[in-house]
Every structure is written in C-alpha cells, then in structure tokens.
Design a protein around this nucleic acid. Sequence first.
DNA 1: CCGAGACAGTCAGTGTACTGACTACTTGCG
DNA 2: CGCAAGTAGTCAGTACACTGACTGTCTCGG
Lengths: 154, 154
Amino acid sequence: MAAVDLNTHPGHLARRLQQAHHLLWTTMVSEEITSPQFAVLNTLAAEPGLDQRTVGERVGLDRSTIAEVISRLIRRGFLDKDRDPRDGRRFLLRLTDDGLRAHRRLTVRTARMNRIFLAPLSTEEQTLFLDLIRRVADAADELRAPADHLVTPS
Amino acid sequence: MAAVDLNTHPGHLARRLQQAHHLLWTTMVSEEITSPQFAVLNTLAAEPGLDQRTVGERVGLDRSTIAEVISRLIRRGFLDKDRDPRDGRRFLLRLTDDGLRAHRRLTVRTARMNRIFLAPLSTEEQTLFLDLIRRVADAADELRAPADHLVTPS
DNA sequence: CCGAGACAGTCAGTGTACTGACTACTTGCG
DNA sequence: CGCAAGTAGTCAGTACACTGACTGTCTCGG
C-alpha cells in the first residue's frame, strides 16, 4: 500500500518511450545499426573530420560511451579514425564509403519509422510533443552546466 | 551533407529525456537505488507476493532484465524471494522492512524531483506531456502484442 | 498416468550509459 | 625554455535492456 501510480512519473514514461522506440527501430530500420550509432553517422555526414569528444557532444553522449560506439562503428568499417597531425590528443573521424551508404539508406527508413512512431498523435500534437520533450530535456541539462551562453557573468 | 536534424527525431529526444531524468534522479533522489529499482519496490509495496515475471510486466521489463534488477535488490536486503509452494517454477517476492523503509523515503523525494523535472512546463502542459508520451508508448506496445484485450478474434 | 506443449527463470552475448581514476599530449605563463 | 593546468582518450566498474538458447516445472489431453 501507499504505492504511487508510475504512469504519472515522467522518468518511468521516458523509459517506456525509449523501449517502444527501440522496438520499432530494430524491426523497421535496422538490426545491425542502432539509433545512437545512426546519430553518430549523421553527425559525421554533416561535419566530416570532427574529433571524438565533439561528436559525443553533438549526439549527447559522454566520453566513455561515445568511445565505445565509435569503436564498434570502426570495427564494422563505417568510420575511419586518424590522429590529428595538429593536436596529438585528438582523433579525427570521417565516414568511409560504406558508412556514407549506410547513412543514406537508414535516413530513408528512419523517416518512415518516425512517421509510424508518431502516428497516434495528430500533426499539431506531434510538433507539440517534440517541443515539450526538448524543453524538459534542455532545462535539466542546464542544471548540470550553468547557462554561460545566455548570461556571461560580468 | 544531406544530414538530418536529430531534434526532430523522437527516438533521439526520448534518449535525451531519459538521460536528463537520470541526472536529476541521481542528484535529487538516490545514488544507491535507481529509478527502475524504485519501480520494482513500488510495485511490491502495492502487491506483495507477486512473482518475478508479473513484476516485470508491471514495470515494463523483460524476464532477463527484471531478474538482474531483482537480484541486486535482494543482495542489498530490500527484497525476499521464496519459491511458490503451489508452483515450483515461480518465486514469490516481498519487501523486507528495509525495503519498505527505502520505498517510503524515496516516494517523498521522487515527488519532489518530478516537480522540478517538469517545472519548465505549465500545469496544463505537464498533464498533456505525460498523456502524449503514454499514448505513443502504448501504441508502439500494441504493435508487438496485438490488442487481444480490445478485439478478441471471433 | 504419461508425455507434449506451455511457462518461469537462468545464462551468454551485445549494446547503451554513467562515474571516477588514469595516461598522454598541449598550451600558456612565469 | 619548462612546468602546471587543462584537455582527449582509455579503462575498470556498475547498471539497464534486449535476444535467443537452455533448464526445470506444470498442465492438460489421450
């Protein structure tokens, strides 16, 4: 007794949402390449030659996790990793031809999957939905890293 | 080039939302007990003596994952696990006194955390937000398990 | 009353995801 | 120039999350 209804807990619902997405992804997009892996390919398609840390920042993954994701993508031949000649700490990343092809192929399927995933909502609700999630996620991020980009302390 | 804006991808946003939640949880609720673990405690507080599979169903975790979560809770003394005398396949689970205390303590903190997590949204937006997530997640679940509970095939 | 199919739980394998400790390289300041 | 502080990446440890293969138990029909 004295138990709570988990369906009023955003954290619980967020987890369920991600599981639902994972299910649709593996059946409709790819069993080989995961959604975070696609995010990495996508980022490097837009900006080739980024270093590991920056890619992680773009897709929202910490140093350790992005390292693992990238090493898997390299193992499968989708990515190349070369030491930055100008800064020996960095590795520069770029897509291989295979990686580029995979990205193109998955882009199409991902769009289709997103449509079906959001199908239970009306068009206005879909836009609102994405906006609400973004606002909540961004606000929580601010708590970690105080918003220097808005109010630089004088 | 030809890259997509990840901020229009519900899957990407769902992941970011969960990360944001995880951050708030560990700082505001507990570093020891995770959100899925709390969900299990909560379920057993409401319905003591459930078996493992059913608990997993209630909190939305598959057999393998729920087994690990439960074994961690047992290791820490929050749960007891006894063979069902009436069905030798099942284990019946119930909270220990420690588990009950932990659940009570975390319930308070979780409520506080949820308020802060949702603070960027107005009250109406909060209700809407939870409702939208639930609808999307439920719909995707239906794709896995055809809705027997609505239309039983004649 | 016995055997086939269903069902609960375990185990191995893969893939996020985080923290905290460590290494190696760079940069800027004295 | 030379070292301290900062930064990029690695590594170990923990926890969730899924699939698919396997073990042990139960149940129902013949």
